[in-house]
Structure formats: structure tokens, C-alpha cells
């Protein structure tokens, strides 16, 4: 059996390696991805049409808005799935209240976390808010914000983190993020254009058609960030406590 495994790995590896020589070189101007009409349109027209310097965010949040919307839905479904599989409601194994303060890390780790946490959260908010001008966006900022709550749970215990971000609040935030994203698309429909066609919103957002698209990207990124933050923290708290949400790592 091991022999056949090795043989299949060698054959598949050989096929993959022999296919790599047909790939275009790194940064090749004539490669299909770079020379096609779609990519050159994005590269040349993005800043002019949306006033967004970061092309990646413009493609993700505007031109391919459906893709990002359903990616957010996928993350939401993954989080709901983890809750559905792992979460148990029962008090037979729960710990008494007076032991809750014992969990968490030592004094040094706690002090370091309390010093570093505000900066992490501020930077996460900056990444979300500045995602269409510099690298970053809803996913990265949301993950960092979720990670800051995970760090809080690791240092001060899950009970402390849950006092900021309770289970109910987690689910409300996760659903609210999707609601913001889809609601923004529906708003475009209401204003008399296609779903997620942000240029229809220039009458209610300041700064003309281009800035309307830029502002809409920010709104959509905030929705993504809310969902990702909530789902990341919910995943960690469910996985680390086997769904009991009482005492973490």
C-alpha cells in the first residue's frame, strides 16, 4: 500500500512539475492574466472610476462584490456550523463560580496583553477603515479584531472576554455584518440600479459617483469585518471549551 502511495505521489508530482513550464513567467506582461481586456481595464480605470488607490480592494469589494458577499456568507455558515456541532447546553460539567478567576495566564502575560491590546484593536480598526487606500480590508481587520478578543481570552480567561463579547452579541454581530453587506446591495436596488451597483448611491452619499463607490466599499468592508470578528471569536471559544463556553485554555 505504501508503495502505491509513493508511486502515485511520484506520478502526480511529475505531471504537476512538467505542467509548470507552460506557466507564464513571474510578472510577464504578455501572460493571459495581465494582457486580457478585463485586467487592463482594472489596472487603468480603477483609480479614475472609483477614486480608490488600492486596486485589490476595488476589485474585491466593488467589481466582484458578489464574490466577497458570498465569501462572507461562507464564513458565517462555517461559524454557525461549528456552533451547531460543538455547542452543548448543560450544566453537569460546569465549574463553580469561584474558580472562574483562576484561569488565564500569569501576571507578566496579563500585563503585556493589557498593554498591547489597545494598539492591536486600534490597528485592526485602521486596517478596516483604510482598506481601500492601503493593504488590508474587512477580512484582515476583522481577523485582527477577533484575534484581540482571543488574546484577551487567553490572558484573562474566557469569562473576561465573554463579558465584552457575549455569545448573543457574537451571533448578532455575525448576522449584522451580512445584513449590512446585503442591505447595501438592496439599497442600490431601491435607488433604481442593479444589486451592488454602488454608483446608484451618488444622490445620498457626498462627493459624486466615484466617491459614492469609494464610500460604499468602506461600508461593505465594515460589514465583512463585523462578521469575521464575531465568527473568529466564536470559533475559538467553542473549540477551546468543547462547546461549553465556560473555561477556556
Amino acid at each position: 500500500m505504501k508503495f502505491f502511495g509513493l508511486l502515485s505521489v511520484i506520478i502526480v508530482g511529475f505531471l504537476l512539475l512538467s505542467a509548470t513550464k507552460d506557466f507564464p513567467n513571474w510578472g510577464d506582461e504578455d501572460s493571459p492574466a495581465n494582457s486580457g481586456p478585463v485586467s487592463s481595464f482594472y489596472i487603468e480605470k480603477t483609480e479614475e472610476k472609483t477614486k480608490v488607490p488600492n486596486m485589490v480592494t476595488a476589485v474585491l469589494a466593488d467589481y466582484r462584490g458578489y464574490d466577497t458577499m458570498f465569501e462572507t456568507v461562507v464564513i458565517f455558515i462555517a461559524g454557525i456550523g461549528i456552533i451547531a456541532v460543538l455547542r452543548t447546553y448543560g450544566s453537569n460539567e460546569s465549574i463553580p463560580k469561584n474558580q472562574v478567576g483562576d484561569e488565564g495566564a500569569g501576571l507578566l502575560a496579563r500585563m503585556t496583553c493589557s498593554l498591547i491590546l489597545p494598539f492591536i484593536q486600534l490597528f485592526a480598526l485602521y486596517v478596516v477603515a483604510h482598506g481601500h487606500h492601503s493593504p488590508g480590508g474587512g477580512f484582515q481587520g476583522g481577523v485582527m479584531l477577533g484575534a484581540s478578543y482571543i488574546l484577551l481570552a487567553l490572558a484573562y480567561g474566557l469569562a473576561r472576554a465573554k463579558s465584552c463579547f457575549s455569545e448573543k452579541r457574537t451571533l448578532v454581530f455575525a448576522a449584522l455584518g451580512i445584513f449590512i453587506y446585503v442591505g447595501w446591495g438592496v439599497l442600490c436596488l431601491v435607488m433604481g440600479s442593479e444589486f451592488l451597483n454602488y454608483s446608484a448611491l451618488d444622490s445620498i452619499l457626498p462627493g459624486g459617483v466615484e466617491m459614492a463607490r469609494s464610500h460604499s466599499m468602506l461600508a461593505v468592508e465594515i460589514g465583512v469585518a463585523l462578521t469575521v470578528t464575531a465568527i473568529m471569536f466564536s470559533m475559538f471559544s467553542n473549540l477551546s471549551t468543547k462547546g461549553r463556553l465556560d473555561k477556556g485554555l
Binding site: N54, V56, P135, G136, F139, Q140, V143, M144, A147
Partner: peptide, 12 residues
Amino acid sequence: DVAFTEAAVGAG
């Protein structure tokens, strides 16, 4: 952007 996502999601 991809590197940022990998650092936050993959490594973190």
C-alpha cells in the same frame, strides 16, 4: 494584500 491575509489568518 494576500501576504497580510496570510499573516493574520494563516499564521495568527
